[in-house]
Amino acid sequence: MMTNEPYYRPIRIEEVSIACNDGISLGGHIWYGDDPGPHGSVIINNATGVLAKYYHRYARFLAERGFDVLTYDYRGIGASRPPNLAGCTFRWRDWGALDFEAAIHFMRRRFADTPIKVVGHSVGGYLPGLAASASVLDRMLTVGAQYAWFGDYARDHRVAMFLKWHVIMPLLTAIVGYFPGKRLGWLEDLPAGVAYEWSFRRPKFEVAYDVAERSEVLSRIGAVTAPILALSMSDDEFGTPQAIGRTLSYYKNAKRTIVCLKPTDVGQEKVGHFNLFHDSHSSGFWLDTLVWLRGGVNPWPNKIAGFSWENA
């Protein structure tokens, strides 16, 4: 589905610092125009090891069309990276429980009367449920959202991906003290705790928590009631329908819809896990996302995937 889009507004960009409850500060940007946005605010949650600046073109696109948008780097990444990455103890779960939580509070202070929507890419679509304040969210759009259990990787890529992310990554992390992904051309560098949580992920994410913490984290993700439109691309080796369904099965009290698209549906030969946030999609897929973010209408009603949450 593609829509005609007549509405544009001037924007301005502000560099911001987001304070987390544990004293860590995150670097980010607010993208907004001269007048309050009529469609609410959006928090963009990045994929693992991807800098916030990769999403800046999409953030500008949304801001030009009436949204106030926050982009930010998780702790240990990009503008939120400490001087000594090997010496920090950041974990994947902290990106949700502390960083995204701080992002929610930041946006509520800055735009008190507007609903908060989330665009979550990859792990960025899983993290919201770890935040204590996620119950205030208005709507979520997720793209390839999953928490990287290797059993959900695309079957024809699974062995190579297991070796790369679940054997080589933890070995290098143990040697270096953090995952040197940038030197390898494998995304950005990652804190050791993030790399290990990814490498040793199990089918049920909560088993990574102490037994006493599991009921609380499950309660948090179950408290989210924001409708979720979850997108899977047919050539995405990470965000398969099984992976997305496994993640969404925890959002038990949210209305959840999985849409499966082929690259040809968005005018491409290949898309994979990352391409949808390239500005080549500004006149197609990006316009379609507005239909959901503005009015909660699925722009791909003929692409809905059947899924049994109970079997996730």
Results as ranks from 00 to 15, higher is better:
26 L>P: 07
271 V>W: 03
23 G>L: 06
88 C>Q: 05
307 F>H: 14
170 P>D: 08
308 S>K: 10
247 T>N: 15
298 N>S: 09
64 E>K: 14
45 N>V: 06
252 K>L: 03
165 W>T: 01
241 P>D: 07
59 A>V: 09
54 Y>H: 13
116 I>W: 01
94 D>S: 09
189 D>A: 06
124 G>W: 07
175 I>A: 14
236 D>W: 03
10 P>F: 00
77 I>N: 05
109 R>H: 13
145 A>H: 04
193 G>S: 06
42 V>C: 11
18 I>Y: 01
227 P>T: 05
64 E>Q: 15
74 Y>L: 04
301 P>D: 08
294 R>D: 10
37 G>I: 02
9 R>K: 12
248 L>G: 02
306 G>W: 05
35 D>P: 00
270 K>L: 09
29 H>A: 07
73 D>K: 04
105 H>C: 04
57 R>P: 00
147 Y>F: 15
256 R>K: 14
175 I>Q: 10
248 L>Y: 05
297 V>R: 06
186 W>Q: 06
18 I>G: 03
234 S>I: 00
65 R>N: 02
195 A>T: 06
271 V>E: 04
227 P>V: 04
115 P>Y: 04
93 R>E: 14
293 L>V: 06
114 T>G: 03
145 A>I: 11
233 M>W: 02
74 Y>E: 00
244 I>E: 02
206 E>A: 04
88 C>G: 01
184 L>S: 02
197 E>F: 04
230 A>Y: 07
143 V>H: 05
145 A>D: 05
298 N>W: 07
185 G>P: 01
35 D>V: 11
11 I>R: 03
267 G>D: 13
226 A>Y: 06
140 M>R: 10
3 T>F: 08
290 L>C: 09
301 P>S: 13
182 K>I: 09
250 Y>W: 14
24 I>S: 03
48 T>V: 15
282 S>K: 14
143 V>I: 15
150 F>P: 05
112 A>D: 12
125 G>P: 07
25 S>P: 00
308 S>D: 15
78 G>S: 03
79 A>T: 15
292 W>Q: 09
154 A>L: 13
191 P>T: 01
146 Q>P: 08
83 P>D: 14
294 R>G: 04
147 Y>N: 12
152 D>F: 13
32 Y>C: 10
9 R>Y: 00
175 I>M: 14
309 W>D: 12
91 R>V: 03
260 C>D: 01
92 W>M: 13
103 A>H: 02
235 D>E: 10
277 F>T: 07
47 A>Y: 05
287 L>T: 12
66 G>S: 07
102 A>C: 04
61 F>T: 03
99 D>S: 11
251 Y>E: 02
41 S>T: 14
309 W>E: 11
187 L>S: 08
